[in-house]
Design a protein around this nucleic acid. Structure first.
Lengths: 246, 246
DNA sequence: AAGTGGTCTAGACCACTCT
DNA sequence: GAGTGGTCTAGACCACTTG
């Protein structure tokens, strides 16, 4: 590939050059020029492409790295961050021994349905759009610990709707990536408390009316589109979370 | 004041020069050379003091700013951060209308006592050290919303133990600063859930056994000493918290 | 050895704040 | 206008990774 000689045309006059550069690089990343997990060109290359000094280019990359968009590895290169992969929900709970074990997943139901109004709003879709609804139970050492309901927009997740759930792993995000090419880049969790309805209680093997912790998640891809709305419910007494304020 | 011509002697050979510089500056701040809220010398001055290039000095200051130790203001100077001042507990609750209103504080009890084992451990004190125990109720529009118990080491907080609580404002941290010269620089909150004991319930005007959110806080000063252990209890149904994962 | 990102320097110039 | 931090440059050298 030869040097594109891109122009830095900032429509925001008050913006610094490295700020404009960061925005331009972000746009190239979001556009898919370098897919998640792959390496970007070297600093030298990018600097000459955009016709800025090396230091300025580095400032821009540093800001993108601080935003979690890219990762820099000494001696290897600069990489677009792959999606979230872990089990980030577990940060809110301490079940059993609290070893970092990943809960086993049991799919309870999977349906293509028209999104209820509340869901289409959360996903930013038109009213009545088709979505995939996933209900699953998560267990640690055979004990139910979390009950989840996930809503996924169609046709983006068609591949998930058509595949055999028994082939899935215990984590959903790797399936999103491998089967649908969807990378979860950012997630917002809202925590609140309530009590278990009768059916929820039965599935979690707890008494009805038992206090529950509810985590409502919105997950977004690189471009900022909401690609999952999820609600997870667990025993309030297993809830535990630490925040540092500065 | 003349130029100290400080030497940068890093005992950690693997550490970069700006890293060592940042550590040295942090030490000067923690030692109280520039008290919280006051300005540090200019970049030029610090750079010549420590015999490094301006860019290197700036890197060090940037890392201290990222850690929340200092604040930089364009055209004015670099300032050691004053302590936390707001009402950070409220980030966990949404009472009533949820306007950013600060709850009124009513002191229920104030005692000098020997610290129970659990408390002296939390504060990092020797067993049986004298501490100040503060119990207070916080109210919004006349409605009780939070019940708090704070433990403060003595003799550091003697001034608080001897003053008239009716002169205090609704926030404790400004009192710590003005009366005892203690600045809260960092706080760690641990959230969990439980149910209200009979006395707690009565004070919060809720039924006994009602689900509760419990926030257990450790607060630290610039030097990293724990200067407050606090436990706050509120209605679990008023709890609400948002986290962004990246 | 070649290529990558990380550190450090020295200096010019700009933007903001205060008097 | 003087003093402060913020931006940008150009280049030298170092440290890490890979073939």
């Amino acid at each position: 590939m030869n040097s594109p000689r891109l122009q830095l045309v900032s429509d925001t006059p008050g913006l610094s050059r490295y700020g404009a550069l960061a925005a331009a690089l972000r746009a190239r990343i979001v556009a898919g020029e370098w897919p998640p997990g792959t390496a970007m060109p070297s600093e030298q290359q990018l600097a000459t492409d955009h016709q800025v000094a090396l230091g300025t280019l580095r400032r821009a990359l540093e800001s993108l790295a601080a935003q979690g968009l890219i990762e820099r590895v000494h001696g290897k290169g600069t990489f677009v961050r792959a999606g979230l992969t872990g089990s980030p929900l577990l940060r809110f709970f301490r079940f059993g021994q609290g070893t970092g074990e990943v809960p086993v997943s049991r799919i309870l139901a999977r349906d293509r349905i028209a999104a209820p109004a509340a869901i289409s709003r959360r996903l930013g879709l038109g009213a009545g759009t088709q979505v995939l609804r996933l209900r699953r139970l998560r267990l640690l050492q055979g004990q139910p610990c979390l009950l989840e309901e996930a809503w996924l927009p169609l046709p983006l997740f068609d591949a998930l709707a058509d595949s055999d759930p028994r082939e899935w792993g215990d984590l959903l995000y790797p399936e999103y990536a491998s089967r649908c090419g969807v990378h979860v880049h950012r997630a917002v969790d809202e925590v609140s408390f309530g009590t278990l309805a009768a059916t929820q209680a039965r599935q979690l093997a707890l008494p009805a009316g038992h206090p529950s912790a509810v985590v409502s998640r919105h997950a977004f891809d690189l471009a900022g589109r909401c690609i999952e709305a999820r609600t997870s419910v667990g025993d309030a007494h297993a809830f535990h979370y630490t925040v540092t304020i500065t």
